[in-house]
């Protein structure tokens, strides 16, 4: 039988923060990662758990001030169903649709994906490419952490032990193009071998690319930005020469590893190939 650690279910955020001020507690939202840990097969089970499921202030999706705000407890299924997401940031629904299958999408939350900090977390490269800001809070108040400062080491976040992920703010940018690709063993229920998210700004198809952001998952100990490749793409046009050069640059930039899901060589080649294809499609050649 799995371990059944003690759990508290606060009714609102102030109560949750009071509990976190007393002792460290491992949060549970949709449980798709933590409930595996209590079986003891992956890592050690938590000593004490904080059940976030009643914190309704952390649910929902809103659009205001040119930003999409997604509450930490919003599930992938809710993101897929959201009319706001479909109209303002359809790539987020596209990414949510690649997570697990329907059972996982009904339970797993965006905040959980962020806090669990898996290097293979499906949505994390997209949040990096979109320059999302992660709002966190605890007994000492709230603060905002840019996505590229959030995952600081292997499965380690910038969260203090008494802090929770509250919501994610994603700036919406006119003329921004975004592409997302996940490669796994099969389409559903696969942990990624490579996740790639690419964003750039472009007034029209002939225009040079600006503000290029390229983020990758499953190729390092955490989700990363590929900054050399971003620089290479900055100011370029979507030509064959650009695609070849960007593919070569990203293959040289990343240091993936061999593990149970894939090999370093496969990951490097696939990352380069996906990027090449996205640039080709963007160039329409």
């Amino acid at each position: 039988m799995p371990v059944e650690p003690p759990v508290e279910t606060p009714r609102d955020l102030p109560e949750a923060f009071r509990l976190l001020a007393l002792a460290p507690r491992t949060p549970i939202a949709g449980g798709t990662d933590l409930m595996v840990r209590i079986t003891g097969e992956i890592g050690s089970p938590p000593d004490q758990v904080l059940d976030l499921s009643r914190l309704d202030e952390l649910r929902g999706i809103a659009l205001a001030g040119g930003q999409l705000t997604v509450g930490a407890l919003t599930t992938y299924a809710e993101i897929r169903r959201s009319g706001l997401v479909a109209r303002s940031l359809p790539v987020l629904a596209e990414a949510a649709a690649t997570v697990g299958a329907v059972q996982i999408q009904n339970r797993g939350t965006l905040g959980g994906n962020i806090a669990n900090a898996s290097p293979a977390g499906d949505t994390l490269p997209l949040l990096l490419a979109l320059e999302a800001v992660i709002e966190v809070g605890g007994p000492r108040g709230e603060r905002s952490i840019p996505a590229d400062q959030f995952w600081i080491a292997y499965r380690t976040t910038a969260l203090a032990p008494d802090e929770l992920v509250l919501r994610v703010r994603i700036p919406l940018v006119e003329a921004r193009q975004v592409r997302f690709r996940k490669v796994g063993t099969r389409r559903a229920q696969a942990i990624s071998k490579v996740v790639l998210a690419l964003a750039w700004e472009q007034a029209d198809r002939k225009d040079r690319w600006g503000h290029v952001r390229l983020a990758l998952g499953s190729v390092a100990d955490r989700p990363i930005r590929a900054r050399s490749t971003e620089l290479y793409l900055e100011g370029s046009r979507a030509t064959l020469e650009t695609a070849d050069g960007a593919a070569e640059t990203v293959a040289a930039e990343i240091r993936p590893i061999d593990d149970v899901r894939s090999t370093a060589d496969y990951r490097r080649q696939v990352t380069a190939r996906i990027l090449h294809r996205i640039i080709r499609d963007a160039g329409g050649w």
Partner: peptide, 13 residues
């Protein structure tokens, strides 16, 4: 009304 895997749902929820 939603399908979930019961191995990942804690009783408190």
């Amino acid at each position: 009304g939603e399908v979930v895997v019961s191995c990942l749902v804690p009783a408190c929820q």
